[in-house]
């Protein structure tokens, strides 16, 4: 059962979202990208109205997550995803401006798969995203429910 992987992008800054999307496309990844600008909408989409996550059962998801959101921290979203039985197998890429080592450590401890800091140097940024695209093309994303 191969199903196209949907990329869920949770990023409050429109500019960042646009830059990320553009660079993902440039790296040749054509999967559907669903973007959310705040945590509440993203949570609703991921976990459904009842909060159980059953709505995503059988979907293959890859989640791009910013840590600094207006309504909640990305860390909380990460924690919820990794505690949910339907979603915990979905890879989570944390993509944020924070480069604090404590924060990075915390994210990996909570089960984040990749942590990328957004560098101001655009070349580095674009490279990182393109490599992420490469990464997307080689990883096998399991469906959310097993």
């Amino acid at each position: 059962m191969t199903q196209p992987v949907t990329i869920i992008m949770i990023e409050d800054d429109e500019g960042h979202a646009r830059l990320i999307e553009r660079n993902i496309r440039r790296s040749g990844v054509n999967n559907e990208i669903v973007s959310f600008q705040n945590g509440t909408d993203a949570m609703k989409h991921l976990f459904g109205a009842d909060g159980s996550g059953v709505v995503q059962k059988g979907n293959a998801l890859l989640i791009l997550l910013d840590l600094n959101l207006p309504d909640m921290t990305g860390i909380d979203i990460l924690k919820h995803i990794k505690e949910n039985k339907y979603l915990k197998a979905s890879p989570v890429v944390v993509l944020t401006t924070t480069d604090d080592s404590q924060e990075i450590k915390r994210c990996y401890e909570l089960g984040c798969n990749v942590y990328i800091t957004k560098p101001v140097n655009y070349e580095n940024f674009a490279n990182a995203i393109r490599q992420l695209g490469l990464f997307f093309s080689v990883i096998q994303v399991p469906p959310a429910a097993t």
């Binding site: 500019g15 960042h16 830059l19 401006t97 957004k118 140097n121 655009y122």
Partner: peptide, 17 residues
Amino acid sequence: SHDLRSPLVNIMGFTSE
């Protein structure tokens, strides 16, 4: 300093674009 960085990423990114 953290929050100043976020717009800076956009400025730099779109300047490059």
